[in-house]
Amino acid sequence: MDARTEILDRIRSALGNGAAPPPVPRDYLRTAECADPVELLTERLADYRATVRHCGPGELAATLAAVLADDPRLAVPYDLPGEWLTGYRGEVARDGDPAPLTVAELDDASAVLTGCAIAIATTGTIVLDAGPAQGRRALTLVPDHHVCVVRTDQIVAGVPDAVAALDPRRPLTWISGPSATSDIELNRVEGVHGPRRLDVVLVR
């Protein structure tokens, strides 16, 4: 008998004719209550030691230029809006335009700039789904400084709202602050293998 058949048989005989379990009680909050999602997201991100800046749509290029002032080489997804970069003075490498950046080229970039799919206020989480202005997963992983633009209309209140809004067929990366470890005496230290700095720019 092949392993698949045997395992399925074992499960069926282990379960016997047991009664079906009752329906799952879902009395938890399906939509989180949140008076001021922008403020909450800001506070939660700061808890992870991410930096947060607020700006209006007209100030975005200047804000990004300031955040990226110390980064000589910037990686961006091929479809990043050109107007985001009008203030940036360093060198820009577009992933996938004309060809995908190699790992070495990604490693060479001091920063990466992207948008996001959604952000979750309650947990201070940003979710990337490889959609517009986000690029593939490696792009936001290898450079040491991730600058992420979040529009306030992309903010949802809680985890259930986020799960409902996402498409599982896309590769999803949930990011809550810079990379960190709690492996040494269970105290959080920011900055291990993922980007050591996360800067979030919230655009109203």
Binding site: R44, D47, Y48, I120, T122, T123, G124, T125, A130, R137, P168, R169, R170, P171, L172, T173, W174, I175, S176, G177, P178, S179, A180, R188, G194
Partner: peptide
């Protein structure tokens, strides 16, 4: 933590 720093979700090959 409210959320761990990274959660990855993937479905087959992209």
């Amino acid at each position: 933590e409210r959320m761990n720093p990274y959660t990855s979700m993937w479905t087959g090959v992209t």
